[in-house]
Amino acid sequence: MSKSKFTTIGRKILMALSGFFLMFFLLQHLTINMLSVISPDTFNEVSQFMGTNPVVQFALQPVLIFAVFFHFIMGIVLELQNRRARTVKYAYNKPSANSNWMSRNMIYSGLVVLAFLGLHFYDFWVHEITEKYIDGDMTGLIDPNNPNSGYRYYDELSEKFIDPIRVIIYIISFVLLALHLLHGFQSSFQSVGVSKGKNFIKKFGNAFAIVVPAGFIFIAIFHFLQH
């Protein structure tokens, strides 16, 4: 009988499940952000809904935070374990003969995304939490005392992209996210034991890995050019 509760494979499956959740979240996030390009008003409405809906705030948001922390902590733990499994390195190695760069450098693409998440939390999330739960302003209005001032979300998004440095950081991070997903998408299916249709999964995954980050990059550049 098995002695350990979580086998290497068990941890791997959990890694894939958190990856699935994060990819699903990315898609949802992209969809809403796209509204900021199409219609600022709709974007404001949806943002107010997401920001005040109790299911989103107190069910989905904690799950998301848990998934993010779980994913990067487990990713780092697995990486450290894997390094310990070979302490004497090859004097001469040729990994490019049998695997691609993306698959070998998940930890580095992941760490760049993590650094980005730090900036992103600082940019949006800390501000949101302060505004809503510390200052207690749930109205989402530019001027909470003036119901006609309109929602603040579009303006807050737009002004983040005035600084070209920030735009460049966003672009680099999303390129690294694309590299992460070029391996990660198909890898998570393999981890949970799906190998039927793997050619399709690979093709679809490559498209997902490029289209989704490219969408975020497009939005950043779009708002930068608006200023």
């Binding site: 290497t8 494979i9 697995l78 894997n82 691609n100 698959s103 890898s187």
Partner: peptide
């Protein structure tokens, strides 16, 4: 799988 883990092999990352 348990024995594999006891032997100290690393985790698969599907490379």
């Amino acid at each position: 799988v348990n024995q594999m883990d006891i032997e100290g092999f690393g985790n698969c990352t599907n490379t």
